[in-house]
């Protein structure tokens, strides 16, 4: 193998990549916040005793879970503006795509957590005379929350990785910035290796944080 690796042209353009990294963190953070909100609403709808609320939420969730993310990005950036006769900024379109999509997955995390609480817990609370709201707040949600941590973190990792698709809308996150650097340096292997490494560092440090959080939440076991 005679390939001569040369990282220097890439590394001298580090401000571009740093910009990209910050934008990746920014878009991921915004999308997680909105995704959680969307997910909470969807989960409540899906847990409702009324079919007319459950069904549309289920269709929404299943649609998002069974179509590729890149379709959502393009749909929000190109298709939706045509229908509404507006124009969307790449960041807004990407956040819409990411948060609706991850909302569908978060909803399943929340719903799964709630439904994993044994029937005996619901009955134990009811037998004390608690109302539905009281038993959710005091008994079910606190226990479900600890069980949701791991799948929630997993889903958020997927979301962080999916932010790379915002590059296809020309939003300046890490991958897009890498493409810029590549077009200046013609060093694709070095550029994309560097960027892959940055993602790796980002995700590994997030997972360390997540472990600390999980240990705190499950202290009672």
């Amino acid at each position: 193998m005679s390939y001569q690796w040369d990282f220097s042209p890439v590394l001298t353009r580090w401000p571009l990549l740093l910009d990209g990294l910050l934008n990746t963190v920014k878009i991921a953070a915004i999308a997680i916040v909105f995704g959680v909100l969307v997910g909470l609403v969807l989960a409540l709808l899906r847990l409702s005793p009324r079919r007319s609320l459950r069904l549309p939420a289920a269709v929404f969730v299943e649609f998002y879970r069974n179509t590729p993310p890149i379709v959502h990005f393009f749909w929000f950036f190109y298709a939706l503006p045509v229908v509404l006769n507006i124009s969307l900024d790449p960041l807004v379109a990407a956040v819409l795509a990411l948060s609706t999509q991850s909302g569908a997955f978060y909803a399943e995390v929340f719903r799964g957590g709630i439904r994993s609480i044994e029937r005996g817990q619901w009955e134990g609370a009811k037998a004390l005379g608690m109302t539905h709201t009281q038993l959710m707040r005091r008994i079910v949600v606190p226990q479900a929350a600890t069980r949701m941590v791991a799948p929630f973190v997993e889903r958020s990792f997927e979301l962080i990785k999916t932010t790379a698709l915002a590059s296809t809308l020309a939003y300046g996150e890490l991958l897009y910035q890498a493409m810029m650097v590549n077009s200046e340096t013609f060093r694709p292997l070095e550029v994309y290796s560097t960027v892959a490494l940055l993602y790796l560092v980002l995700l590994v440090s997030c997972s360390a944080l997540a472990r600390v959080a999980e240990a705190r939440l499950t202290a009672y076991r």
């Binding site: 390939y3 932010t163 694709p188």
Partner: peptide, 23 residues
Amino acid sequence: IELFRDTPVLIQLIWFYYAFPIL
């Protein structure tokens, strides 16, 4: 395994697209 799981697929595809011919 961790390299593949902790980086975006899109980057993996782009990387291999460039890397296969070179490597």
